[in-house]
């Protein structure tokens, strides 16, 4: 569906995107990952033709951007907001009309979505009267009301309660099964890990890691152990068996130093801590992210990276 080839964008003082290539296919969810300021939003804006790349190509099914394609793109920006003073249904219909959906069809679809998000009774209320989470649901509806072939969702889960997160996750998977291409931009690695077929990790304007999620993870080997425990976690941070350590209060993700066998480590640390769970596995996406982005330290960073 979407192919970006060697796209570059420079602003007055910084190179925001430096030769990014990525591909989003129908029936796939592509995780667009990266730290703050990595160039994700700029990449997204170029894909949507909001801004023009300085060089590089962005193709849709092999063709360059055209006005027709615009109506088949959907976008949920990271920073949320709608017209506060306007009524819910009118707002949805306006955005639908901008995508070429007439009022009658727009209404039919709007009611369907409002019902799904349990907002049907609020259709005549003003946006500002809704809770933040509900506003976000409305905004999500506006981004997919025209049934886009490519939908770009920037942090769609933030601010939603667990119930609505499940609804949203279901919709994303539905879209995938309907053969839509979904680009899912997020900082939340656990969400990305659960949903994405492919990932594309951007750092400082460059793609630093990409590919099918399973391949990416297995390429990092299976020398990771995750443990749940009771006791003083600081013992782990200085333990010589680990080359990388992420500590939480009673959970840790550890990378084994070369040629250290998991069962030896287990025997060793079970004398120091009260181990409840021990798992030898591939690294989590979170660990990969931290490694690639290079903020990983042996300790202290865990809370920020969660």
């Amino acid at each position: 569906m979407l192919t970006a080839i060697d796209v570059r964008k420079e602003f007055a003082t910084v190179v925001a995107v430096d030769g990014v290539s990525l591909e989003a296919n129908r029936g796939e969810i592509l995780g667009l990952l990266g730290p703050n300021g990595a160039g994700k939003t700029t990449s997204i804006r170029m894909i949507l033709n909001i801004i023009q790349p300085d060089s590089g190509k962005i193709l849709f099914d092999g063709k360059p951007f055209s006005e027709e394609i615009r109506d088949h793109l959907g976008y949920l920006p990271e920073e949320r907001g709608l017209y506060r003073k306007n009524k819910l249904l009118n707002t949805i219909l306006y955005f639908a009309s901008l995508k070429g959906i007439d009022t009658a069809e727009g209404k039919r679809r709007a009611y369907k979505w409002l019902e799904r998000f349990d907002l049907l009774t609020a259709y005549d209320r003003k946006i500002e009267e809704l809770s933040k989470g509900n506003q976000q649901k409305v905004q999500f509806i506006t981004s997919i009301i025209h049934e886009p072939d490519l939908v770009i969702l920037d942090e769609p889960f933030s601010g939603l309660d667990p119930v609505n997160q499940i609804i949203l996750k279901d919709i994303m998977l539905e879209m995938k099964h309907q053969g839509k291409a979904v680009i899912f931009s997020t900082h939340q690695m656990d969400q990305a890990e659960k949903l994405c077929d492919k990932i594309c990790l951007i750092n400082k304007g460059k793609v630093v890691l990409e590919g099918a999620l399973a391949d990416v993870k297995s390429s990092y080997g299976s020398n990771t152990v995750r443990i749940e425990f009771d006791g003083d976690p600081n013992i782990l941070s200085t333990h010589p068996a680990f080359s990388a350590v992420q500590l939480y209060d009673n959970y840790a993700e550890l990378v084994l130093a070369n040629s250290i066998k998991p069962h030896i480590v287990l025997r060793d640390i079970s004398q120091l801590l009260d181990i409840r769970k021990f798992e030898n596995t591939e690294p989590s996406l979170n660990a990969i992210f931290l490694k690639m982005v290079g903020t990983e330290k042996r300790d202290g960073q865990a809370k920020e990276a969660r």
Binding site: L48, R70, P77, G81, L82, Y83, R84
Partner: peptide
């Protein structure tokens, strides 16, 4: 100003030239 501050403008710009 409102469209800018609530970022609706990004959606508008992606929907229409």
């Amino acid at each position: 100003l409102e469209e800018k501050s609530n970022r609706v403008v990004e959606v508008l710009m992606s929907s229409s030239p």
